[in-house]
Simulated scan of single mutants.
Amino acid sequence: MKLRFASSLLIFLSAYSPLSIIFLIQDFDFAKKEVMHPEIVWPILGLSLLSCVLLWVAVRYLKSSSPPISVKSVSNRSGELINYSIPYMISFFVMDLGNLKLLLSFGFFMFIMYWLTMKTHNIFINPVLAVMGYNIYDVHYERNGNECEDFFLVKGPRLRKNERCRIVEISEQLYVVTERNPEV
């Protein structure tokens, strides 16, 4: 199952939503107490906020009735969040929202980042999900007598060996844990 374009874009935008606040601060004229490029800043800020709210609603209301799986081993992937820092660092260099060439260049760079995160299955290594309490793990598990290894988004503490949980697939090789130690 591949992640739909709209869903992946929503997740990607939410990951970079703090960047919109940085743009707002950088574009704010403190002497005049106004935003210098409101036609750019407000839509970006609104889209960022909308993507975070929709992401929160989506993960909050995921349901699963699949048979429980049994965890064999777990390794953490949340440390890869550092990869999201590159666009944030770029924003601190000359980022004039009134300069069309800079905006187009930054837009192209963000498109390349989106494409790479999709191709490498790193779309869910997302600081906004981390703030919501989700971590991503590489999990080796048993499902219906078969050994599998995939990525799991888990809210709360790390999964433990031999723990049982219910999962729901949200993209190829990526699942969200919807229930831990379920009553069978």
Rank of each mutant, 00 (worst) to 15 (best):
L3W: 14
L3T: 15
L3R: 09
R4S: 10
F5E: 15
A6W: 15
S8F: 03
L9A: 10
L10D: 01
I11M: 00
I11E: 00
I11C: 00
F12K: 03
F12L: 12
L13K: 02
S17P: 09
L19R: 05
I22D: 06
F28S: 07
D29P: 01
F30Y: 04
A31V: 08
K32P: 08
K33V: 15
P38F: 02
E39S: 12
I40K: 12
I44E: 00
L45E: 06
C52H: 01
L54D: 11
R60I: 06
Y61S: 11
S64F: 06
S65M: 08
S66Q: 14
V71P: 01
V71N: 07
K72H: 06
V74R: 07
S75V: 14
R77G: 03
R77D: 08
G79E: 14
L81W: 03
I82C: 01
N83I: 01
Y84A: 00
S85H: 05
I86G: 03
I86E: 04
P87A: 11
I90E: 03
F92Q: 10
F93K: 12
V94C: 11
G98V: 11
S105G: 13
M113E: 15
W115M: 11
L116T: 11
L116W: 11
L116H: 14
M118W: 06
K119F: 14
T120P: 13
T120Q: 08
I123K: 02
I125H: 02
V128N: 15
L129I: 05
M132Y: 14
I136N: 01
Y137S: 14
H140K: 06
Y141E: 07
E142K: 04
N144D: 14
N144R: 10
N146R: 13
E147D: 07
E147A: 15
F151N: 08
F151T: 08
F152A: 08
V154Y: 01
P157L: 00
R158S: 04
R164Q: 02
R166D: 00
I170T: 07
Q173W: 13
L174A: 03
V177Q: 01
T178Q: 02
P182G: 00
E183K: 07
